[in-house]
């Protein structure tokens, strides 16, 4: 199987993830989109590693997984904190940083 197909798959997954982040108002869904983008990147890294026959990409993928795990904890905590404060998890609701 041609490894380049995994790269295409990664691009598609990344596009889906970013669409979820940009288009959905629900914070949980957007967050899932972020996870999807991270995993798309991981897939691309592993695919390139395979293409080039080097192990660097796979090592990098592990780092990303660790970071993603930590990020999930922090992200979900923020979402819960926002929900407790405002009784909503809509992304459009908090706009205090408007200049």
């Amino acid at each position: 199987m041609n490894p380049i197909a995994f790269v295409y798959l990664a691009a598609v997954l990344f596009a889906i993830g970013s669409a979820a982040v940009l288009l959905r108002r629900n914070a949980i869904i957007a967050f899932m989109g972020v996870e999807l983008m991270l995993n798309a990147a991981n897939l691309a890294l592993v695919a390139f590693s395979r293409i080039h026959g080097e192990i660097d990409g796979q090592v990098m993928a592990f780092f990303v997984m660790v970071v993603a795990a930590a990020e999930v904890v922090v992200g979900l905590a923020i979402i819960i904190a926002v929900f407790r404060a405002r009784q909503t998890i809509s992304l459009d609701e908090p706009a205090e940083l408007k200049g």
Binding site: L22, D92, A95, L97, K98
Partner: peptide, 8 residues
């Protein structure tokens, strides 16, 4: 004006 405060 660039700072809309909108996360998305």
């Amino acid at each position: 004006r660039l700072q809309t405060g909108q996360v998305r």
